[in-house]
Amino acid sequence: MMKLKQFAALAALALAAGAAMAQTAQETAIRKAIEPRLGDGAKIDSIGKTPYGGLYEVRVGGDIFYTDAKGDFLFIGRIVDTKTFQDQTKARLDEINKIKFADLPLDSALKMVKGNGKRVIAVFEDPNCGYCKRFRQTLNEMDNVTVYTFMYNILSEDSSAKSRNIWCSADRAKAWDEWMLKGKQPDAAPANCSTPNDKILALGQKMKVTGTPTIFFTDGTRIPGAVDQKGLEAKLASIK
């Protein structure tokens, strides 16, 4: 009886190993078929079979798309569960793009506290970003929130200079709000004032922040782009 059980266990292990090898071979074939066609030195980070329609998920950086078992076709878009209407693609993107909020270098951000400040977000903004200015107005109308702003200079040649002037102001958060909400230019920064501009640019690139504003929440998820007050309140309320 013992030998029979041992044989069954070994057989199960062999089947699992065989399936894993077949899966790896399939993923290798898909990579070989697709990666050269992506261009610009793009590299596939991972390939995995999905539970829907025999499709394979292909992850490149912070993005995902889908392909068939041979890598002959690419499917770019959203997969939605017709029973629950859940956006499976969004859920997966949220998962792979999660961050550890506690690891953010908050000492390199501007800090604004409103009310009790219990609800916390971090946002990457460019001083020349129109959508950021609109989102700043939304934040101005909210209460009981702490906002850490990382000045992420990606839109214009003078973005870094504006961020430097704001960082070197006596009241950084006030200078930022006055610029974003009122268009009031801060005083020129003294020559000996250093900033975290380069550090924040590298951080944003590492976190695959491709546009501003990008909002991060304490559960590690993000929202790319501006969101209205109703949407932001709903998101904050959903975080346990």
Rank of each mutant, 00 (worst) to 15 (best):
L4N: 09
A9K: 15
A9H: 04
L10S: 08
A12R: 07
L13G: 06
A14E: 05
L15G: 00
A16Y: 10
A19D: 01
A22S: 01
A29N: 05
K32F: 07
A33Q: 13
I34V: 14
E35M: 11
G39Y: 08
D40W: 08
D40A: 14
K43M: 09
I44K: 04
T50L: 14
T50F: 09
P51G: 03
Y52K: 00
G53H: 05
G53N: 08
E57R: 13
V58S: 06
R59K: 13
R59W: 03
V60I: 15
V60M: 14
D63Y: 11
T67L: 03
A69S: 14
K70V: 06
G71K: 10
F73K: 10
L74G: 03
I76R: 12
I79E: 13
D81G: 12
T82S: 14
T82R: 12
F85L: 15
D94A: 12
E95G: 00
E95K: 09
N97A: 03
K98Y: 02
I99V: 10
I99Y: 08
F101T: 04
L104H: 06
A109G: 00
L110C: 02
K111Y: 03
K114G: 03
G115T: 06
V120A: 09
V120D: 04
P127D: 06
C129Y: 09
C132F: 11
C132W: 12
K133C: 02
F135W: 08
Q137F: 04
N140A: 13
N140V: 00
E141L: 05
Y148E: 07
M151W: 06
M151F: 14
Y152G: 07
N153I: 09
I154C: 05
S156K: 15
S156L: 12
E157D: 15
E157K: 15
D158H: 14
S160P: 05
A161K: 15
K162S: 02
N165I: 04
N165A: 15
I166P: 02
W167F: 15
C168D: 08
R172V: 13
A173E: 05
A175I: 03
W176N: 00
D177Y: 08
E178I: 00
M180L: 13
L181N: 07
K182F: 15
K182Y: 10
G183L: 09
G183C: 07
G183D: 06
K184C: 00
A188Y: 00
A188L: 09
S194T: 15
T195E: 05
I200K: 05
L203Q: 03
L203C: 06
M207A: 09
M207W: 08
V209D: 10
T212M: 10
P213C: 11
P213Q: 12
T214E: 11
F217T: 07
F217N: 04
G220F: 11
T221K: 13
A226L: 08
K230Y: 09
K235I: 14
L236A: 11
L236Q: 10
K240I: 12
